[in-house]
Amino acid sequence: MNPWIRLLIYLVAAPIVGGLLAGWDRRISARMQSRQGPPIFQPFYDVLKLMQKENVVVRRSQNYYIFFFLLLAIFTGGLFFGGADLLLVIFALTLAAIFFVLGAYKASSPYSFIGAERELIQMMAYEPMVLLTAIGMYMVTKSFAVNEIASHPTLLVLALPGIFLGFLFTLEIKFRKSPFDLSCSHHAHQELVSGITTEFSGRTLAMIEIAHWYESVFLLGWVYLFFASIPALGIAVSLLVFVLIILVDNVFARLKWQTVLKSAWVVAAVLGFGNILILSLLR
């Protein structure tokens, strides 16, 4: 498929798919807790309602950072589905996250500050594994370009089992799900109010939601990459991984940031680096 067409499909379809995924997330979580749960389209209703609300801020410039977060989150996925360099995609992803964090810093409220600080720790926790994932894919396919990785004839996961598991671990952090929902969480009753999103409201909060939709699609797209040589399997596994993340979210309690950082780095060192070590020895 022409990369431009793929890009266009992504731009239009990602928020719809992402929103639906968020709807399923709430529905499946509810079922796991023996509740009825909201309708599938609830996330869309939420965002539409947020759009109409008053925009309340602490610092006048805080919302611009969020706008750029959304812009760059879309851009990241665009690069990915357009088939660009995987490292470049990671850098764009990081840049997007940094804008989000800076927005929370700018808001200068204690809760958003702690949220921002913890989000940074989470970023520090997942960044090594994400980079190692890209490197592992490069070692197998000899290319960093997403479209070339996707068209590689073998099943990547066979050569990269450790990296795949490590990547699943970081996905849990990236989706901000329990046990790694340190910086902000959808669950009620917690010590940091709404964390990094505390001081954002109305249209800006809606932007954050939409950015998350784009991000989810992009991240699941990356899971697909491990199975890209058999597309049907790839899509099935991506959805399965999403359900797994929801399950973990409901089963585990939140961890302390020290544990998150240490465990994520140990996982990256053992599973990620171990996998790369074996690959380079076999070469």
Binding site: E54, N55, V56, V57, V58, R59, R60, N63, A107, S108, S109, P110, Y111, S112, V193, T198, E199
Partner: peptide, 8 residues
């Protein structure tokens, strides 16, 4: 936007 104090 409406400016308010931070939530404490």
């Amino acid at each position: 936007v409406r400016v308010t104090d931070a939530y404490l």
